[in-house]
Amino acid sequence: MKTTSHVLMIMFALLSISLVAQSCNITTESVKVYGSNERCREEIETAGNQKNVARVSWNPESKTATLTYDSRQTSKDEILKRIALAGFDNELYYTPDDVYEKLAPGCKYERPRKMALIPDGKANLRHDSQQAANADQQKTSPLKMIIDRYLALKDALVENNGELASKKAGELAGAIDKVSMQSLEGDSHQVWMNVKSELAEHAEHISQTKNLAHQRDHFDGLSKNLYRLVKAHPTGITLYYQHCPMFNEGKGGDWLSGENTIRNPFYGSQMLTCGKTVETLK
């Protein structure tokens, strides 16, 4: 009995020492962390929490997080970096764009920094004037939005990224919706009337799934219709109509690309360079 109480006493003493030692270094801070709503909370907190070292509690209304951490073992910097790498901009770190893109759709939020600045981010040692000229030219076509988004979708498929493809297809569907018929004249007006519903349907199908095989089936249809449209209504953008003979059990598949080099959206990395350019559209 006596020994037990001794042991207990010693244990208690040790415990209180360690508690005291710990409490001296506990820091609490309130910081800005961006996110859409309640749905992001778990992701933000999980990313920031570290067992016995750091605890994060995020308030969706005020977009602030309360950090409670042991300042001997970690810092606000480290916690916020982890949160940024999970997709959430905050007062110290901006999340990488590709990480933000992978957030669940409901979790996307308005980012504090305007991402449009990135394309300027090239070292301006060459090619600059040329790029600007291209950009001006492209603005003139009313179909540019559609083509841009189509090409982004194609790139997502090339990279085998079903999630991104789904997102890009959603944007494409939005762009198709917005084209005003008045801006298209004569023949191209007629073609537009014919292909619009098909384009929209394929884009929607792609946006509703993350299954790459399913997306690619619809991408083939989407591409064929877009080809008809571009053929009837020259856009001023150089496009390459490309063909992969193996897709769909040998029936073949077609797509449009902004570059002559083959990067196959039907198989991605698996056989990226399979295919050939069959027509150049200007």
């Binding site: 080099t261 198989y267 990395s269 056989m271 990226l272």
Partner: peptide, 18 residues
């Protein structure tokens, strides 16, 4: 059987991605 990159491109990083 679809894996038919020409041998010379199979490991060429700049041809395989953007």
């Amino acid at each position: 059987e679809h894996d038919h990159h020409p041998a010379k491109d199979r490991y060429n990083a700049n041809r395989l991605s953007s």
